[in-house]
Amino acid sequence: MEQGTVKWFNAEKGSGFIERENGDDVFVHFSAIQGDGFKSLDEGQAVTFDVEEGQRGPQAANVQKA
């Protein structure tokens, strides 16, 4: 798993970007967020995640709040 920080997340659209510790920013969709309840992330929040190849390039998967 990688570690990173939420660069921004739009709760209305359900997507945003995570700033990786090593590498380019990666797209995140709300469906990749693990946990119960409303799936959203806050700017500056620390997260851990896997990276998968999506239709438009790398994207975060199995996102967990650190």
Score class of each variant (00 low, 15 high):
M1E: 09
M1A: 13
M1G: 12
M1N: 12
M1F: 11
M1V: 12
M1P: 12
E2Y: 15
E2R: 09
E2L: 14
E2M: 13
E2T: 09
Q3H: 14
Q3Y: 15
G4Q: 01
G4T: 01
G4L: 00
G4F: 02
G4A: 02
T5F: 13
T5Y: 13
T5D: 02
T5G: 02
T5A: 05
T5M: 09
V6H: 03
V6W: 00
V6G: 04
V6I: 08
V6R: 01
V6N: 02
K7Q: 03
K7W: 02
K7F: 04
K7G: 01
K7N: 01
K7M: 03
W8Y: 08
W8E: 02
W8Q: 04
W8G: 04
F9T: 00
F9N: 00
F9I: 00
F9V: 01
F9L: 01
N10Q: 05
N10V: 04
N10I: 05
N10R: 03
A11C: 14
A11D: 05
A11Q: 12
A11N: 10
A11V: 12
E12M: 13
E12W: 14
E12I: 12
E12N: 12
E12C: 15
K13P: 02
K13I: 11
G14F: 04
G14V: 02
G14C: 08
G14I: 03
G14R: 02
G14H: 00
G14P: 00
S15Y: 15
S15M: 15
S15C: 15
S15Q: 15
S15G: 07
S15W: 15
S15V: 15
S15L: 15
G16Y: 04
G16S: 00
F17E: 03
F17H: 01
F17I: 09
F17T: 03
I18C: 06
I18E: 01
I18D: 01
I18Q: 03
E19D: 05
E19N: 09
E19M: 15
E19G: 11
E19Y: 13
E19I: 14
E19V: 14
E19F: 12
R20F: 06
R20Y: 07
E21A: 13
E21R: 12
E21H: 11
E21I: 11
E21W: 11
E21Y: 10
N22L: 09
N22M: 09
N22D: 10
N22V: 10
N22P: 06
N22Y: 11
N22I: 10
N22S: 10
G23V: 03
G23F: 05
G23T: 05
G23D: 08
G23H: 07
D24F: 11
D24S: 14
D24L: 12
D24I: 12
D24R: 14
D25H: 11
D25P: 08
D25F: 13
D25Q: 12
V26T: 02
V26P: 01
F27W: 09
F27Q: 03
F27S: 03
F27H: 03
F27D: 00
F27M: 01
V28Y: 04
V28N: 01
V28S: 01
V28I: 08
V28R: 02
H29A: 03
H29E: 04
H29D: 04
F30N: 00
F30Q: 03
F30P: 00
F30H: 05
F30S: 04
F30A: 05
S31T: 11
S31N: 06
S31M: 06
S31C: 08
A32P: 00
A32I: 03
A32S: 09
A32N: 08
A32W: 04
A32V: 06
I33M: 04
I33L: 07
I33V: 07
I33W: 04
Q34K: 11
Q34V: 14
Q34I: 14
G35Y: 08
G35K: 03
G35N: 07
D36T: 13
D36A: 13
D36G: 11
D36L: 13
G37N: 06
G37H: 06
G37P: 06
F38W: 14
F38I: 08
K39C: 08
K39W: 07
K39R: 12
K39E: 05
S40L: 07
S40Y: 12
S40E: 06
S40N: 06
S40T: 14
S40M: 09
L41F: 04
L41N: 01
L41P: 01
D42F: 15
D42K: 15
D42Q: 15
E43N: 12
E43P: 15
E43K: 15
E43L: 12
E43T: 14
E43F: 12
G44F: 05
G44A: 04
G44Y: 05
G44D: 04
G44Q: 04
G44N: 05
G44L: 03
Q45C: 09
Q45H: 08
Q45Y: 05
Q45M: 11
Q45R: 05
Q45W: 10
A46P: 10
A46I: 13
A46C: 14
V47Q: 01
V47F: 04
V47T: 03
V47R: 03
V47M: 03
V47L: 03
V47W: 04
V47D: 01
T48R: 10
T48N: 08
T48K: 08
T48W: 14
F49Q: 00
F49A: 01
F49C: 02
F49M: 03
F49P: 02
F49R: 00
D50T: 15
D50M: 14
D50A: 11
D50V: 14
V51M: 09
V51T: 06
V51I: 15
V51Q: 04
E52K: 11
E52A: 11
E52I: 15
E52N: 08
E53L: 13
E53H: 12
E53S: 10
E53M: 15
E53F: 14
E53C: 14
G54E: 05
G54A: 07
G54H: 08
Q55I: 14
Q55E: 12
Q55A: 13
Q55Y: 13
Q55S: 13
Q55P: 15
Q55H: 12
Q55L: 14
Q55G: 11
R56E: 08
R56P: 07
R56N: 11
G57I: 05
G57A: 05
G57W: 08
G57C: 06
G57F: 07
G57P: 07
G57E: 01
P58S: 08
Q59T: 08
Q59M: 10
Q59V: 11
Q59S: 07
Q59F: 13
Q59D: 01
Q59N: 05
A60L: 01
A60R: 00
A60V: 02
A60E: 02
A61Y: 11
N62T: 04
N62G: 04
N62C: 08
N62R: 10
N62M: 06
N62V: 03
N62A: 04
N62K: 07
N62D: 02
V63T: 00
V63H: 03
V63G: 00
V63K: 00
Q64D: 05
Q64C: 09
Q64M: 11
Q64V: 12
Q64L: 09
Q64A: 10
K65D: 07
K65N: 08
K65S: 10
K65P: 11
A66R: 12
A66Y: 12
A66T: 12
A66C: 13
A66Q: 12
